[in-house]
């Protein structure tokens, strides 16, 4: 594996082997000294052109737990505000000695560009509304550890799918691992054309909820200005929010995932968010292990 850019072409055995490694790293993270020297001397650069404290922290925690050094780049107050191009920024970071770049960028495809320009390994830390592969892997790991595996599970992904890289990553990885995925959203938040996606879609959450094993809630982008995509938040909550009433309609063993940060009272009610079947904190912990697995896979072998 040279880069991790997308879940679209990821095969089942490749995904499962990363999840197996992540299981091993969870054990490492559970030790009194949760750190191994596996990537001593390697340098991981986090290039976050779009702010995301959580994802950046998770990658940095993963890199440090593997004893890699980290370089951190953020555009505010940097050369980007002076008009430096993405290409020049990337080549500069590479010249400082980075072996791998985690790239988060508003523009779709930016990590692919970086992989073309640089000799570094590249991990897509989220590009536009396109892909966020480590999020999908940590979600799969969380489901696997909670329910034993994804084969035959019914997973509903609910909310702002059209503008969600998390949804696009999970839409491909979950079916690869054997799950049956339904996208559930108002028509204005479903992708315009899902031809060729291995998923079904619906705009009626109440009709679907009783059959789901996993409810995957997406963050409603209340901060997105301009585009008016649904009439009001209260209408959204009424039709698509995981309220206590809907939580009661779930199967007993069903679990709830959310990529965070949660809007309590919008896509998920406060009480549901604190229920033990809501696995958001497991997702966060698993995220570090998954990212360790990815970094180790990309940097732990013969340099290419």
């Amino acid at each position: 594996m040279q880069h991790l850019l997308s879940t679209e072409q990821m095969g089942r055995s490749e995904a499962e082997s990363l999840l197996d490694d992540a299981d091993g790293f969870l054990e490492v993270l559970d030790r009194p000294i949760p750190k191994v020297p596996a990537l001593r001397g390697r340098t991981v650069a986090t290039l976050f052109f779009e702010p995301s404290t959580r994802t950046r922290m998770s990658f940095e925690r993963a890199a440090k737990a593997l004893s890699a050094d980290t370089l951190s780049f953020s555009p505010s107050g940097s050369s980007v505000s002076k008009g430096e191009s993405l290409k020049d920024t990337v080549l500069t970071v590479q010249a400082m000695g980075a072996d791998l770049a985690v790239v988060r960028h508003k523009a779709v495809g930016a990590p692919w560009r970086v992989a073309e320009w640089a000799q570094m390994r590249v991990v897509n830390g989220g590009d536009g509304a396109h892909q966020h592969p480590t999020q999908a892997l940590l979600d799969a790991l969380t489901i696997r550890r909670s329910l034993g595996g994804l084969d035959g599970l019914r997973i509903g992904i609910i909310g702002d799918i059209r503008y969600s890289r998390v949804a696009r990553s999970n839409c491909f990885l979950f079916p690869t691992l054997g799950a049956d995925v339904t996208l559930i959203a108002p028509p204005t938040l479903l992708p315009v054309d899902t031809e060729g996606w291995p998923v079904r879609h619906s705009s009626d959450l109440d009709a679907e909820i009783g059959s789901l094993d996993v409810v995957y809630l997406l963050r409603v982008q209340t901060e997105r200005g301009g585009a008016s995509v649904f009439p009001s938040l209260s209408e959204y909550v009424r039709r698509y929010g995981l309220t206590q009433r809907r939580f009661g309609m779930l199967k007993d063993e069903a679990v709830v995932l959310h990529p965070g940060p949660m809007n309590r009272g919008v896509e998920v009610s406060d009480v549901v968010a604190d229920d033990p079947r809501c696995l958001v904190l497991d997702q966060v912990a698993n995220g570090v292990a998954v990212r360790m697995a990815v970094l180790f896979r990309l940097l732990g072998g013969t340099s290419g």
Binding site: E8, V108, G128, A129, H130, R162, P191, V192, D193, E195
Partner: peptide, 13 residues
């Protein structure tokens, strides 16, 4: 173009 490709890429079409 708004279609299968833009939807897959998550780009506004």
């Amino acid at each position: 173009h708004e279609g299968t490709v833009s939807s897959r890429l998550g780009m506004t079409g």
